[in-house]
Amino acid sequence: MATDTFFSIPEPSAAGRVTITFEGEPLSVPAGISVAAALLAGGVKTFRSSVVGGGPRAPYCMMGVCFECLVEIDGVPARQSCLIPVREGMAIRRQIGAVELQFGAGEEA
């Protein structure tokens, strides 16, 4: 059975909600959870594409070990989305393949 999301968050959001964007699309998510959890519950299935074969990838370990959950957050590439909590207005993009060096970009948020 195919479902729209791998995970859902049935609990009410005790700590309130924040709005983030993924590839420009807004997502309303519970405050205080990790970016990876928010994206998974928001229906994102592919977080990045692999650097050699370009295959679809998504979080595997959720604890900072596997680096499968890498995404671009607020212009900074290769962030571990399982370790970073969501923040209002956060702009997230898929990471496609290997990261290119970008001079002048990547200002720390």
């Binding site: 059975m1 195919a2 479902t3 729209d4 999301t5 791998f6 995970f7 859902s8 968050i9 049935p10 609990e11 519970p30 959870i33 990790s34 959890a37 928010a38 998974l40 519950a41 299935k45 592919t46 977080f47 692999s50 295959g55 679809p56 990838r57 998504a58 979080p59 595997y60 370990c61 959720m62 604890m63 499968e68 399982c82």
Partner: peptide, 26 residues
């Protein structure tokens, strides 16, 4: 095992502890 939708059971438990997230389907 690299496909989206394959992940660690421990990872899923972290999603439950940290976000109250549960599998959407079977």
């Amino acid at each position: 095992w690299t496909l989206p939708g394959a992940m660690g059971a421990g990872a899923a438990q972290i999603l439950l502890k940290g976000a109250g997230a549960m599998p959407s389907g079977p």
